[in-house]
Every structure is written in C-alpha cells, then in structure tokens.
Computed example of a mutant assay.
Amino acid sequence: MAETTVAEVMAELAGLEDPKAREVNERHGDDHGVNLGKLRAIAKRLKTQQELARRLWATDDTAAKLLALLICRPKAFERDELDTMMRQARTPKVQDWLVSYVVKKSPHAEELRLTWTADPDPVAAGAGWVLTAERVVKKPEGLDLAGLLDVIEAEMKDAPERLQWAMNTCLAQIGIAHPEHRARAIAIGERLEVLKDYPTSPGCTSPYAPTWISEIVRRQGDKPKA
C-alpha cells in the first residue's frame, strides 16, 4: 500500500471544508471548517501513523493538527515535545484533544500536570488542571484534595476563562468522587458562583459546580451532604 503523503491529506481536508461549519467553529475559537465526524472517518482509514502525524502537526493547520492527534501514537512523544505541542496548539479544540487523546495516555502525564498547573500561561495551567481533575477521579492517591480546594477557592473566581473552566471541573470532580470533601466543594461553588448563570440545554447538566455535583451524586444513588 502506498504511503499517504501530507499533500494528499491536506487536499482531502481542503475538499471537506464547509463554510457553515467554519462559521460555527470560529465562534468557539476554532479556525477550521471540517466536520469532526468526517475527520474521524479519515483517521479510522489512516490508522496509527506516527510520522505522518508529526508532519501533519507541523503544517500548523488546525484540521491537520486534529487529525494528527487521532492517528498519532501517544506514548511515542517525549515530555518536552508534548510541552511544545501544548504551546503550539493555538485553538481550544486542539488543546482539548491534545490533553484528552494524547497527554492523558502518555507516561509523562504526571510530570506535565505538575509543570503546567504552575505555569503562568492560563492555557497551559488549564491543561494542568484538566489532568488534575482526571487524577481526582481515577488516581487520587497522593493528591492533597484539601489543598486543591484551597487553591480553587482563592483563584478560580478571577481566573481566565479556560483556566476557570478547568478548575471548576476539578472542583466538581472532588465533590462528586470524594464524599468527605463534598460539603466544602459545594460551599465553595455557592460562594464563588462561577458559571451559575451559564445557559444549559434541556437534558444537560449545568456546569455550575453545586448543581453538577448534586445531580451526578443523585444519579449515582448517593445523597449530597447537607
């Protein structure tokens, strides 16, 4: 089978460009017009191709970067390479996919979590808090949950948007996964009122932490502490 070239992939992505999709995506800060379902179909066809992924990433085209994240081998990246990629990501969707599909599966995830959480760049710091929220749920051993709540209580209210969302997610996950911290997590959310008025579609759970915590706990058959 002939090797797929970057030029071939870029031509295919260009052919999928949809002005209406671009308009919607640009409202969220994402500068591409490719339907993500169609992008995933290309990835499924290409399968894992690490070198092609690296070359697609190097184009700095958002759709190409998203595709690169779907066909790469997460454990093949070095720590510094992933750090550089985070700073090159540029758009929210690329940042989200990089963390969710690549960094979380990397042996360097914990080191990057610690590095990014303390980073002055709010995008990198937000990525660190996303990784922290993941650990809160899946591997909380060794985390200072009370200390995390201290930081959230002190800093979330005035944090830049993406960092604020990530800290809020961490707050909610602490409240959901750790009953001993639930009352405090809910109290912090109620006092800060972050995302309290965020518009939520019918059937969806509000991102407002007290509502989010209470709803998920209810579904799990547990009762939130008073």
Rank of each mutant, 00 (worst) to 15 (best):
V34T: 07
G37T: 12
K93T: 11
L56S: 04
M86G: 03
K47E: 15
A53W: 00
Q50E: 12
D96F: 07
T84G: 14
V99S: 13
H32Q: 13
R40Y: 13
L36Q: 15
T91D: 15
G33Y: 04
A76C: 01
L69C: 06
K93Y: 07
R90H: 04
K75V: 10
L98N: 04
A68N: 03
A41N: 07
L36F: 11
F77I: 09
E26S: 05
R45P: 07
I71M: 10
R54G: 02
T59Y: 01
N25M: 10
D31M: 15
A76V: 00
D61P: 08
P74L: 06
F77A: 05
R45I: 02
T48A: 15
D61F: 02
L98F: 04
I71V: 11
R73F: 04
G29T: 01
A76L: 02
V34N: 03
W57C: 03
N25P: 07
K38E: 13
K38F: 04
A89Y: 02
R79Q: 14
R27V: 02
D61Y: 03
L56Y: 06
R55F: 00
K38H: 09
V99G: 08
I71E: 03
T59L: 02
Q50P: 08
K93N: 11
T62G: 06
L69F: 09
A68H: 05
L69G: 08
V99C: 08
A89S: 14
V34G: 01
D30T: 10
E26I: 05
D31T: 13
A58P: 02
F77Q: 03
V94N: 04
D31S: 15
Q49P: 10
A41G: 08
A68L: 04
E81K: 05
D96P: 01
R90K: 11
R55W: 02
K93W: 03
D31R: 15
N35Y: 05
D80V: 12
T48E: 15
R54H: 05
A64K: 12
